[in-house]
Nucleic acid binder design. Structure first.
Length: 784
DNA sequence: TTGGAGATTTTTTTT
DNA sequence: AAATCTCCAA
């Protein structure tokens, strides 16, 4: 008997060993879903299914790579490299690359990221003489994206009564026109946006029976992870692919559906049973991840949602700690609390940095956490946000490569035609675009035939030089790999040199980024196989196509001992020993944008459910009375989700005061209690904690974190034992020049008092700990 | 044509 | 607070 089956519980084994026919796995959070998927694939292969006939669609490329690795370990051979595993987008991009000629695209078509796509929309809006203030690229773009995800093309969009009504009501009747122009322009540019990778794949299968036939018979077994987050195009594609063999296995949890803004619909998972006869349904309800308390809270909150697949998530794990609710004055206090708390937990329970995750609803919230962690000297890594490949200098460099691989790519061409500056200004670019539109040729072709369009001598020369350079790069394309081309681009454009000569801090960072980019291209070129196991294709085109689809989660720089910070969306599928969820406030979580309909609110609640169920042992929910938004302090109420959690599982020690308007509470503000308790107060330093709890274990974290604390000056507080007679003085009249004693920082001299009358802030020069800004309303100071 | 000062806008969430 | 856009002088 195959021993890999032994580690499975009953329903898991059922899911793994069901080989023929449609299978739906309803997998609760932490129920061993990945294990089931990998074991199932291994089991299929062990039972004679050829790896080449298996397609597995995952949510991130990293998940795909991990699965491959685990399967190899189970099987003990390298067969897994032949599997087709990847995200919808990367798998389809690969197929489209092979079939591009059928639909009029170059096989090295460009993949536009969101920025590129918005930029094209803006161009198109202006060309149609519409106001881009009213037809905002973001608004129009998301409208187009929804249409594509729902399989609505430009023609149908323009004639659909309901859609048109909506656009009329929003006073944006021209969106249909923009959609059509946008689609045309993308095609003309030889480019696909993210949605096109799905839509064109669908059209390919729909319009070319021989292609459909080919892939139907190639993919005899199909597995789809995170099925609750698939949208109608993805649904239709998989339905087409699975139509012959019907060996389709979907895994999902309706309670974790959090991508409706991307067109995902729970309908897909609810519909699955009706689509095929004889669907086997397996429910995985035992949670192996979290404590009893965490599971109870999660279950209780999600009950407030209507209409779900009934299930009962349970665990045999121990009860665990209560969920800690934390209220602070501002977002900065929130950051400080979390950083202090991590420090304390590490000392007390011997956790490593990597055991902690800070999750939040919006990327912008990372700032205050980042600052506090840095001050404390705690290593951290932020996932998401602006990714490496979105940085301006990186995009600029890549734009060269894009033009070389695909001259139709007008977006890229416009980016680089005058970068570095070579005297081809806005007017000239506009002229080129207009000429291109008139003649119905690409902008690049105008540049290449610049002599025919009556440019001034100087301009003409600049254009011709540019064209000669690009042609030179292209001549290397056929017999050189991506890295060699990139190096030549760096040399001949003077880009690298120019950045090198820029000695400002930002210039230096930009230079380093380009170096890193070149290194990563080199690494990619030299690695034996691509991420999907395809051997050999080290061309520039191949490189460019995978680069756009990489996400931050994918570039895993090894297990680092760093606190992880990311949005809740990005945390899907992950787990951590200790989790902080920040900004649990009305208008933030649930988002102010998503409280207008029941559906929206329920999705926010599912998001809350996802956040809570990421934690294995410990969970903190923090919220601030007020936080900065657009540089202004705004008040917020605690999130409604807090009230939905049963009291008995909640520790409210830190949830009392905080607000000034809550003076009746005898708890004192969270900040005050923090000072009384851990982190502050002279005695609770590392040495004391070590005396009390013993030395940290010798197990070493595996590698260096990406963000090692740069300068840890503030982190190392020189311990101060307060005077025996320490009594906080009335500091309302505090003035510059006075000497004071602080419980933690020791003696110092006030250098200034600023801030509003309600919230005075003193800058104090401490003898041992340097300059600190102290909020007088909260800090306890003794005037000496 | 270029670059910079000042004005304006932006925050959901992501492949 | 930060990023992007607009306008103007050189």
């Amino acid at each position: 008997m195959q021993e890999y089956l032994n580690g499975l519980n009953e329903p898991q084994r059922e899911a793994v060993t069901h080989i023929k026919g449609p299978l739906m796995i309803v997998a609760g959070a932490g129920s061993g879903k990945t294990k089931v998927l990998t074991t199932r694939i291994a089991h299929l292969m062990n039972n004679g299914v050829d790896a080449f006939n298996i397609l597995a669609l995952t949510f991130t490329n990293k998940a795909a790579a991990e699965m491959k690795e685990r399967i190899e370990r189970i099987l003990g051979n390298a067969e897994a490299r032949n599997l087709y595993i990847g995200t919808f987008h990367s798998v389809f991009a690969r197929i489209l690359r092979a079939e591009a000629h059928r639909i009029g695209y170059p096989n090295s078509f460009t993949i536009y990221d969101t920025d590129d796509s918005r930029s094209v929309i803006k161009t198109v809006v202006n060309e149609l003489n519409l106001d881009d203030k009213h037809y905002k690229p973001n608004v129009v773009g998301s409208r187009i994206s929804s249409a594509k995800n729902a399989l609505v093309g430009p023609a149908e969009y323009a004639t659909d009564y309901y859609i048109q009504q909506e656009d009329m009501r929003a006073n944006r009747p021209a969106i249909a026109q923009i959609y059509a122009a946008y689609a045309n322009r993308c095609f003309k540019n030889g480019a696909m946006d993210f949605d096109d990778l799905l839509l064109k794949m669908y059209e390919l299968l729909k319009n070319f029976p021989e292609v459909l036939h080919k892939y139907q018979h190639k993919f005899k077994y199909i597995l789809i992870d995170e099925y609750q987050d698939t949208n109608p195009v993805q649904y239709q594609i998989t339905k087409l692919l699975a139509a012959v063999h019907e060996n389709i296995c979907v895994v999902g949890d309706d309670a974790q559906s959090i991508y409706s803004f991307r067109g995902a619909t729970i309908e897909n998972i609810l519909q699955f049973q009706k689509d095929y006869d004889d669907v086997k349904v397996v429910k995985l309800e035992q949670n192996y991840r979290s404590s009893q308390n965490i599971i109870h809270v999660a279950n209780e909150v999600i009950k407030n949602n209507k209409g779900q697949i009934p299930k009962n998530l349970w665990t045999e794990n121990k009860q665990g700690d209560k969920i800690v609710l934390v209220r602070t004055m501002t977002d900065n206090d929130e950051g400080r609390f979390v950083a202090d708390c991590i420090q304390e937990q590490k000392l007390r329970y011997h956790f490593y940095n990597k055991d902690f995750a800070i999750l939040y609803r919006t990327n912008a919230q990372s700032r205050s956490f980042e600052e506090s962690l840095r001050r404390m000297g705690i290593a951290y890594r932020i996932y998401g946000g602006v990714s490496f490949y979105q940085r301006k200098e990186v995009k600029d460099f890549l734009a060269y490569l894009r033009v070389i691989a695909n001259t139709r790519d007008e977006e890229a061409l416009k980016r680089i035609i005058n970068y570095p500056v070579r005297g081809i200004g806005k007017t000239t670019i506009e002229k080129c675009v207009i000429a291109a539109n008139e003649q119905n040729i690409s902008m690049y072709e105008v540049v290449s035939r610049a002599g025919e369009f009556g440019f001034k001598a100087g301009t003409l020369e600049a254009l011709q030089n540019f064209h000669t350079m690009i042609r030179y790069f292209q001549s290397m394309l056929t017999n050189t790999n991506a890295y060699d081309v990139a190096i030549q681009v760096g040399k001949h454009t003077n880009l690298v040199k120019e950045l090198f000569n820029d000695k400002t801090t930002e210039g230096l960072a930009r230079y380093e980024n380009i170096q890193e980019l070149l290194n990563s291209i080199k690494e990619w070129t030299e690695s034996p196989s691509n991420e999907d196991g395809e051997l050999g294709d080290k061309s520039l085109g191949s490189y460019l196509q995978q680069i756009t689809l990489l996400t931050d989660a994918d570039d895993d720089k090894g297990e680092q001992d760093a606190v992880k910070m990311m949005t809740i969306h990005a945390a899907k599928g992950l787990e951590f020993e200790c989790v902080f969820v920040g900004g649990v406030e009305e208008t933030l979580f649930p988002s102010g944008m998503s409280i207008n309909t029941r559906e929206e609110l329920e999705e926010e609640r599912r998001l809350f459910y996802v956040a809570v169920t990421r934690a294995k042992q410990k969970l903190w929910l923090t919220y601030a009375n007020a936080r900065y938004r657009f540089g202004q302090l705004v008040q917020n109420d605690p999130s409604r989700f807090i009230e939905e959690m049963p009291e008995q599982y909640i520790d409210k020690t830190y949830a009392g005061g905080g607000a000034r308007n809550n003076a009746g509470s005898d708890m004192g503000s969270a900040f005050e209690r923090m000072q009384r308790g851990f982190g502050f107060g002279g005695s609770s330093n590392a040495a004391a904690a070590e005396r009390k709890y013993g030395p940290p274990p010798s197990r070493k974290p595996s590698s260096k974190p990406e963000y090692l604390p740069v300068q840890p000056p503030a982190a190392k507080v020189v311990a101060h034992v307060p005077s025996a007679d320490f009594v906080a003085s009335d500091t309302s009249q505090l003035q510059a020049g006075q000497k004071v004693e602080h419980q933690k920082f020791g003696f110092g001299t006030v250098s200034s008092v600023e801030g509003s009358a309600h919230n005075p802030v003193a800058t104090i020069q401490f003898e041992k700990n340097g300059e600190k800004k102290i909020m007088l309303n909260y800090a306890k100071l003794r005037i000496v």
